[in-house]
Amino acid sequence: MLRTMILLVAVLAFAGGFMPAVAADTAATAPGRRVHVILVDKMAYGPMPTGVRAGDIIEWANHDILEHSATARDGRFDVDLKPGASAHITATAGTLAFFCKFHPTMTGSVVVK
């Protein structure tokens, strides 16, 4: 019984140890960390965020009826965006130029300081 309890507590602690970290990544609750959302709709990326700093979260929210992606030109990231889905990355310093690999006429660029 005691062993079972200890095991249960250990499992919960293990799960708890990871879950807040994932949640924090999504909600950017860490101090000084901000979320910048780029809306995707009607075959276009919305306005590009400004004032992005390394470590911030860049999230793409696909409101379009079509599947898209945010694919880095330099290969740093490649996120698929099903209709209605969102995906994010942690920003690293530099200019993040990206496009939709399914619809290359869709392009965007974010400056990260």
Binding site: K42, A44, I65, T105
Partner: peptide, 9 residues
């Protein structure tokens, strides 16, 4: 209009 952008792409 979305269809037009799609056709362009």
């Amino acid at each position: 209009e979305t269809g037009s952008k799609l056709f362009h792409s």
